[in-house]
Write a protein that binds this DNA or RNA. Structure first.
Lengths: 248, 248
DNA sequence: GCATATTTGTCCGTATGTATA
DNA sequence: CTATACATACGGACAAATATG
């Protein structure tokens, strides 16, 4: 009856088995749910039912609650006492704050590009190229991913694991915004040339100009996003969908 | 037998009952443990036994495990599969990274002091004064607290809730360092005059000078701390205390 | 190296409070 | 207002991993 869950570790047998990072079930469950949320399969407002998800994933409610705690701590979900866990619905103020954090982090990254090692800009360059290639082939989803990777790479110039993780969290939260907005395919597209511009300013060592270009980029993106979001916010509040949007 | 824990909410009866932020048991348990860890009652390396702590706090193992997840996510504890949860033991590299994050955040705070509202420097001023008062009365613990509040206030100049929380986490982690170092009473003390200096540069609007003073401050503090920590680290590794330090 | 004790990992069942139709 | 559904939290069980003698 009870007892540990039977995970099929034999899927990757061999001597590597020792090196497989065995993780707790709650961590793996959190990974799965995080992916679902980030990719928009569980749109903001969706209630994450203990019973339903536990049944689907084949884990107990106790384990599931541990996973929920992690997601709430990452701000991808919110916990309402005695009501359950819901995929986070960001406010316009949240978007403003997220861009404020981006200004701080990415700005620090650009400024740190001065002392960084020779190959530090490689991942920035790769993200710019990937974005342009994807756009040329009209793969808007990939172009969007490359755009996010570009900014993650900018944050990476600081060279701090904690900053990297903070940036991952910030971009994950921003994905929640994209999932409540219609037609976001072209959102990233328009900014791809500006990524190229910022990268080239970095490469030539013109850091003040790069910093200015980045600041303008972030201001523009924030305004576009917040304006569209405020509009959509009004729509979302007027219609009261079933079980999805928490009423209070 | 089973059933919800009987919390005595009657302690704060009256109409305010509606406004009491009822939190889940796991959150309250995490609060208690976080305080214990930050204050050094559970020094780094201490194993947090599910059975022992659950018995003392009067909560079930399941609830306790939810609380542990939160602490691990805050980097105040680490989870080792099938071995349990331990109070985090920071490496010297961690200290370096924490100061890198501080440079980014506090630097952004100082730079943001230009656009901030009139009363924004109030909490900075208060922290400086409190620190000096505490030092004058030789209350080193209070002086240390005021020092941390000063830097939290610097981060607060950015005006971002997320940055504020990040800074809280960073300072909480740094406390873990202080708890493995002997005689840290005078550590903060020496920096109090420099807090005053930075504040006055901010007040007079000399932001570039304030930024430079802060950078020097952080470099000095980092070096002092890392050097002392590396020494102590060597000592800690040679002696293998009972059950506290995880061997592998 | 082996047998044993301890502790964690995970599940299940269940009583009870809370929110909502 | 009652009924229903669900979250909250507890306790017990047992497998598996780890620590101990």
């Amino acid at each position: 009856m009870g007892g540990q869950v039977m995970v099929d570790w034999s899927a990757n047998l061999g001597p590597e088995r020792e090196f497989v990072a065995r993780t707790a079930t709650a961590d793996r469950v959190a990974d799965v749910l995080r992916t679902r949320i980030i990719e928009g399969l569980f749109p903001p407002g969706t209630r994450l039912s203990e019973e339903a998800i536990g049944r689907v994933l084949g884990v107990s409610r106790n384990t599931l609650r541990e996973a929920f705690r992690l997601l709430c701590h990452e701000r991808l979900a919110t916990h309402e006492l005695n009501r359950g866990v819901f995929v986070r619905v960001l406010s316009a103020d949240d978007v403003v704050d997220l861009y404020q954090v981006r200004r701080v982090i990415e700005g620090a990254g650009v400024r740190a590009a001065g002392q960084s090692t020779p190959g530090a800009l490689d991942s920035v360059r790769a993200a710019v190229s990937d974005g342009e290639r994807a756009a040329a082939r009209e793969l808007w989803l990939e172009a969007g991913t490359a755009d996010l990777r570009f900014h993650q790479a900018l944050a990476g110039l600081v060279g701090s694991p904690r900053i990297d993780e903070l940036m991952r969290g910030v971009l994950a939260e921003l994905r929640l915004v994209f999932h409540v907005m219609p037609s976001r395919q072209h959102f990233h597209q328009a900014y791809l040339p500006r990524n190229r511009e910022i990268f080239e300013l970095l490469e030539t060592g013109n850091l003040p100009a790069a910093e200015r270009a980045l600041a303008v980029y972030l201001d523009d993106a924030e305004h576009e996003l917040v304006n569209a979001y405020r509009e959509h916010d009004g729509i979302a509040e007027s219609m009261d969908e079933e079980g999805k949007a928490p009423s209070r």
